[in-house]
Design a protein around this nucleic acid. Structure first.
Length: 217
DNA sequence: ATTTGATCATGT
DNA sequence: ACATGATCAAAT
């Protein structure tokens, strides 16, 4: 079940093109959610199952041995991304010495298998279909912007300035809350070791970047 | 409580 | 219309 090579993963992903969620769920013996709005990660998990992703909820690329991350991406009928894309948890007590190349963001984004899902809210959830997959690696320009965004945001977290970060910062990569709700709090630390309660955060990719990816690959 | 999978829904 | 801030579910 676990793909051995990137090519095997790619072939398997391509074979899913044009399948509806209903068809894929049936093939995998999975039940479609009755309330899709209460099963937000369901499509991503279905694709993990279909393709043999192995990392579970570890902070690692889904296909650890291939260093490839799997991401589903809802797209409109026009082919544009409909949502930002969650990357990973944002550390609130970061190691100030960590470099961009060592970061989980970089590890995950250096190679991504995108599975676009054609999403039309006028049609039934089960009839959403899988579009052509894209195997992407950031180009030099994209990588530079991602690195700058990451460094700017991480510098603020290290300084203990998490509360002054908002989602408007960052050209491609930004930080937003990532918790059960606005009441769930976690502990942040600044560089002096002082701790405080704050919302859990996550890194997300803006649609500006995913739109580029969809239209240039 | 944390991290994964994300999308929902309100405010601008 | 769109992005930001809020939220839902499962695994550990």
């Amino acid at each position: 079940m676990i793909p051995t090579t990137p090519d095997e993963l790619w072939q398997r992903a391509c074979a899913l093109k044009d399948l509806s969620l209903a068809q894929l769920a049936q093939a995998l013996d999975q039940r479609l959610p009755e309330q899709p709005q209460q099963a937000k990660g369901w499509i991503g998990q279905l694709l993990e199952l279909a393709l043999g992703a192995s990392a579970g909820n570890l902070a690692k690329p889904d296909f650890m041995h291939l260093n490839i991350e799997l991401k589903t991406l809802p797209i409109s009928l026009r082919g544009d991304p409909m949502e930002t894309t969650y990357v990973c948890h944002a550390p609130l007590r970061p190691n100030p010495q960590e470099t961009w190349e060592q970061s989980v963001v970089y590890q995950k984004l250096q190679h991504v298998l995108w599975i676009p899902i054609i999403t039309d809210h006028k049609q039934a959830f089960a009839e959403r279909t899988i579009a052509q997959p894209i195997l992407w690696q950031p180009n030099a320009s994209q990588l530079n912007i991602l690195k700058q965004d990451w460094q700017e945001l991480m510098d603020m977290i290290v300084m203990g300035d998490i509360e002054s970060i908002d989602a408007k910062m960052g050209e491609y990569l930004h930080i937003r809350p990532k918790g059960a709700n606005a009441k769930s709090l976690t502990i942040g630390h600044n560089t002096l070791g002082m701790s405080f309660k704050t919302l859990p955060r996550g890194f997300y990719l803006r649609t500006d970047l995913t739109k580029q990816i969809l239209h240039t690959c």
